[in-house]
Structures are given as C-alpha cells and as structure tokens.
C-alpha cells in the first residue's frame, strides 16, 4: 500500500513541476539603445521612465555619475549608463530609466533611446560571448539572439 502511494506522489510532484515550468517561461525586458547596441533590463526592476529632468551635477564624483535629481522628494543618483559600461561610442543621453534600488533611493540610468518591451523566453537566454567589442563585458549578464540583432542583458547589481 505504502509503496503504491509513494509512487503516486512522485507522479503528482513531477506533474506540478512541469506546470510550474510551463507558467514561468518568459521574462519581460525593457530595451533601450546605447549607441548601436540594443540593451535590456528586466522590467520588474524598472520603476519608471522619465524625460526632461533637471540634473544637478556633483563635482568630484566619478566620471559616469552625471549628478543627482529630485524625484518627487527623493534624491536620485543619475548615472550615464554609456560611460558606466565603457561604451566606445559617444552618445547623447536623453532619457532617464529609473531603477528600483532595494531599501535605498532609486537610481537613474540615462540612455539615448528607448526600444520595445520584449518578452524573452527564459530558456533561450544565453551566456555572453567571449569577446564583446565596444562595451565592457563585465556588466553583461546574458545575451539573447533576436532575428536581426543581439540583445545585451545587463546585470543591474553590478551596475549599481
């Protein structure tokens, strides 16, 4: 009796697993352009997207810090994402991507242009290639092959 029961349980368990996998198969990314690179950050980490904000520079800070800004009473650090990842190309930062920062004030990544919102299948995400030209590899967590280009997925923890 017992043995039979256990096997039934086993069968049940595996069914559950399959279901779970079935449910969680895509991650939503907000994509944006840094020069010619299409980059993405998981949508769940993004608080909002903002234009036209006044940035107060903080002299003596690192190169990639553009300064600070006032987001509804919170002091948000503004980072030039292109500089942060050592993008070889020169870009003109225009849009603020406000990122949630657990327990602390949010941070803003400034980028050039926002792309589409993409649903990326979980299992199609790959490790970054050995060499990446024109951008610093250490901040790239994964890549995803789109029909006409590659999506670079950033490791937000490393960026912050």
């Amino acid at each position: 009796m017992d043995i039979v029961k256990k096997e039934d349980e086993k069968v049940l368990l595996s069914k559950e697993k399959d279901q779970k996998l079935a449910v969680k198969e895509t991650i939503t990314f907000v994509t944006f352009y840094l020069g010619n690179f299409l980059c993405g950050i998981p949508a769940e980490l993004i608080m909002e997207i903002n234009k036209d904000t006044e940035i107060t520079p903080v002299p003596l800070a690192d190169d990639y810090i553009l300064g600070i800004m006032n987001l509804r009473g919170q002091i948000v650090t503004v980072m030039d994402l292109a500089k942060r990842v050592n993008l070889k190309e020169q870009i003109k930062p225009t849009i603020n991507l406000i990122i949630k920062n657990e327990g602390e004030a949010p941070v803003s990544f400034v980028v050039e242009r926002i792309g589409d919102i993409l649903e990326v299948p979980f299992d199609k995400v790959e490790k970054p290639p050995e060499k990446v030209e024109g951008i610093s590899k250490e901040y790239i967590k994964n890549v995803y092959q789109l029909p006409d280009k590659i999506l670079l997925i950033f490791d937000v923890d490393k960026l912050l």
């Binding site: 800070a61 810090i65 600070i68």
Partner: peptide, 14 residues
Amino acid sequence: LGKWFKDIPVYSGA
C-alpha cells in the same frame, strides 16, 4: 547622498 559619493570628503549630503 548615495554610496557613490561616500568618498568625496567635501559633501555631507544634499
């Protein structure tokens, strides 16, 4: 100020 500014001695906040 955030952690990026901790090492700059001339600022104590904003």
